[in-house]
Amino acid sequence: MAKLEEMQEPMRSHLANLPCPTFGTSPWVSGPPLAQRRVAIISTAGIHRRRDRPFEGMAGDYRVIPKESTAKDLVMTHLSTNFDRTGFQQDWNVVFPLDRLRELASNGSIGSVADYHYSFMGAADPAEMEDAARRLAGLLKGDRVDAVLLVPV
């Protein structure tokens, strides 16, 4: 369970004491109904294409995952040992639901699936990810994305 109060020590304190940023503003961007939106996934699971460079440090960098990717194309090099990886090893959709997203596009629940999706290594300091995230915004707009689904691990 990912309920802090149900976790065992020392994991509970480790997570409870992680610093979280706060912001003075609450940006909110409106858009068309879900059925018309173009959706991209951004994962923080440290996944990437098999031949792409692994996540070796905490630099806040990202990797690109094209929409044609399948389970066999992706590997995970997240730093942490403190989360389950057997789910991903059985079925990538439990971490990176690209197959599910394709189904939602096929049945009209969403407008379309973006051409490119992205992955960070979530143990990095969020401040280290800021520049990359702001640059990603331009790439997402270029891909006509108007709905980003962020998926942690």
Binding site: P21, L149, V151
Partner: peptide, 20 residues
């Protein structure tokens, strides 16, 4: 994860997220 959403939304890209 939440910080990424904040940065993207501030740049004009709508976001939703799963929280663990």
């Amino acid at each position: 994860m939440g910080a990424l959403a904040h940065y993207l939304e501030a740049e004009g890209v709508p976001t939703t997220q799963i929280s663990l």
